[in-house]
Design a protein around this nucleic acid. Sequence first.
DNA 1: AATGAAACCGTGGGCTG
DNA 2: CAGCCCACGGTTTCATT
Lengths: 148, 148
Amino acid sequence: MNIDETDKKILKELQKDARKSYRKIAEQTDISEGTAYNRIKKMQQNKIIQGYTPDIDYQKLGYDLTTIIGITGEGSQLQDLEQEIAENPHVTAVYDVTGQYDAITIAKFQNRKQLNQFIKQILKRKDVKKTYTMLTLNTIKEKHQIKL
Amino acid sequence: MNIDETDKKILKELQKDARKSYRKIAEQTDISEGTAYNRIKKMQQNKIIQGYTPDIDYQKLGYDLTTIIGITGEGSQLQDLEQEIAENPHVTAVYDVTGQYDAITIAKFQNRKQLNQFIKQILKRKDVKKTYTMLTLNTIKEKHQIKL
DNA sequence: AATGAAACCGTGGGCTG
DNA sequence: CAGCCCACGGTTTCATT
């Protein structure tokens, strides 16, 4: 599917506020509301828009510990492990990476005990050689959008 | 502000679909729609809900290069730099961290040239000693939610 | 926290270029 | 075919209780 300038404008409006009404999106992109509706629907069908997420301040909910964990594997395949990690409720991201580590995961915890359990769970696996945990001292930015 | 079980249920519904109507949220949490509306408004005022973001497949928009970059500083303060990085349109996250690096940033690019420019911009600064760039080969998960 | 009423909006059909 | 316009039922919003 090809995205044109109108689609981009629509996405930008949604980035500003994903709960914005079709009508307002239409006004701000100089199209009719039916068109806004149809284009958004199409982008959802094409999985360009995969859903809508509330930006929650997890710190206010007690998740004070954000961690970035590098994982070094033993041997070849980490896919199973990555899948398992991805399903853990504390995890927000899992990447296969080049360089120093084989995988990087980002996870949020309410306390060190939860973090500990998580790391132990990873280290239990035979395909994991070691992990390296970085604690975030301060989150300067964490908004899962890039400028279009 | 204190979050009770009802608020949590509301947040869970929004996590499933942040465009869900107040009415449906109310139905699924066994409260009236006015209550759903009032509670969500309160959580917005208290900045527990900071906004709503569309989950966009940036790869489909040409952003094929997701990078995790570790930054090592020279001397003391990296705050200015971090602020500057956070404002770059390619950047989705910036963290101050313990350990091997002083800061970690996550950024998405359409090509290596964009990445290169970004790294050069960082390295130009006197307060930066070095950077370490990890390219993601595969994104297993990147959903900026944790299970409540 | 619930009610209810007015304003606002989503959704689909039919029309137009 | 994509976009526009319209209409109706559904939804948001907020003052009131």
